[in-house]
Amino acid sequence: VTTYKLVINGKTLKGETTTKAVDAETAEKAFKQYANDNGVDGVWTYDDATKTFTVTE
Rank of each mutant, 00 (worst) to 15 (best):
V1P: 06
V1R: 11
V1W: 15
T2Y: 12
T2F: 14
T2P: 13
T2E: 08
T2D: 13
T2G: 12
T2K: 07
T3M: 12
T3H: 05
T3V: 08
T3G: 05
T3L: 14
Y4E: 00
Y4T: 00
Y4G: 00
Y4K: 00
Y4I: 01
Y4L: 01
K5G: 03
K5R: 11
K5V: 12
K5M: 07
L6T: 01
L6S: 01
L6H: 01
L6P: 00
L6I: 03
L6W: 02
V7Q: 08
V7D: 03
V7G: 02
V7Y: 15
V7P: 00
I8L: 09
I8M: 14
I8R: 01
I8T: 04
I8P: 01
N9C: 05
N9D: 14
N9R: 09
G10V: 15
G10H: 15
G10R: 04
G10Y: 14
G10N: 10
K11E: 14
K11Y: 06
K11H: 15
K11V: 15
K11F: 13
K11W: 13
T12I: 15
T12Q: 13
T12C: 08
T12F: 15
T12E: 15
T12P: 06
L13W: 11
L13E: 14
L13A: 04
L13G: 10
K14Y: 07
K14V: 14
K14C: 06
K14G: 07
G15W: 15
G15V: 15
G15C: 07
G15E: 15
G15K: 15
G15Q: 11
G15I: 15
E16F: 06
E16I: 04
E16P: 03
E16L: 03
T17L: 12
T17K: 15
T17Q: 14
T17D: 04
T17I: 12
T18P: 02
T18Q: 12
T18K: 10
T18A: 09
T18N: 13
T18E: 10
T18C: 06
T19A: 12
T19I: 09
T19Y: 12
T19R: 07
T19W: 06
A21W: 03
A21D: 03
A21F: 08
A21C: 04
A21R: 03
A21T: 05
V22F: 09
V22D: 10
V22E: 08
V22P: 09
V22N: 09
V22K: 07
D23L: 09
D23C: 03
D23R: 09
D23A: 05
D23Y: 06
D23P: 01
D23N: 10
A24H: 11
A24F: 13
E25V: 13
E25Q: 12
E25H: 11
E25C: 04
E25M: 15
E25R: 14
T26S: 13
T26W: 08
T26A: 14
A27G: 02
A27Y: 00
A27R: 00
E28K: 12
E28N: 10
E28H: 13
E28R: 12
E28G: 09
K29Y: 15
K29W: 13
K29L: 08
K29F: 11
A30C: 06
A30E: 15
A30T: 06
A30N: 12
A30G: 05
A30P: 02
A30M: 15
F31H: 01
F31E: 00
F31K: 00
F31N: 00
F31R: 00
K32R: 12
K32G: 03
K32A: 06
K32H: 10
K32M: 13
Q33T: 10
Q33E: 11
Q33G: 11
Q33P: 02
Q33F: 06
Q33S: 11
Y34I: 14
Y34G: 02
Y34S: 03
Y34W: 07
Y34V: 07
A35T: 12
A35D: 01
A35N: 04
A35R: 01
A35F: 03
A35S: 07
A35Q: 02
A35P: 01
A35M: 09
N36S: 12
N36Q: 12
N36E: 09
N36A: 14
D37W: 05
D37H: 10
D37Q: 11
D37A: 07
N38I: 06
N38M: 09
N38C: 05
G39W: 06
G39P: 02
G39A: 13
V40I: 13
V40D: 01
D41T: 11
D41Q: 08
D41P: 05
G42A: 02
G42D: 02
G42H: 02
V43R: 11
V43E: 13
V43F: 13
V43K: 07
V43W: 12
V43T: 13
V43L: 09
W44K: 00
W44L: 03
T45D: 12
T45Q: 09
T45M: 10
T45S: 15
T45W: 10
T45V: 08
Y46E: 00
Y46M: 02
D47F: 05
D47L: 04
D47W: 04
D47S: 09
D48N: 15
D48W: 08
D48G: 13
D48Q: 07
D48L: 08
D48Y: 11
D48F: 05
A49E: 08
A49H: 15
A49N: 09
A49F: 11
A49K: 12
A49W: 08
T50S: 12
T50E: 14
T50F: 12
T50H: 07
K51A: 09
K51T: 04
K51P: 00
K51E: 04
K51V: 06
K51C: 04
K51Q: 12
T52R: 04
T52D: 01
T52L: 05
T52A: 03
T52I: 13
T52W: 02
T52N: 02
F53H: 02
F53A: 01
T54R: 05
T54N: 05
T54Y: 06
T54K: 08
V55W: 02
V55F: 04
V55K: 01
V55Q: 01
V55L: 13
V55N: 01
V55A: 03
T56P: 01
T56K: 07
E57P: 04
E57A: 06
E57T: 03
E57H: 04
E57M: 04
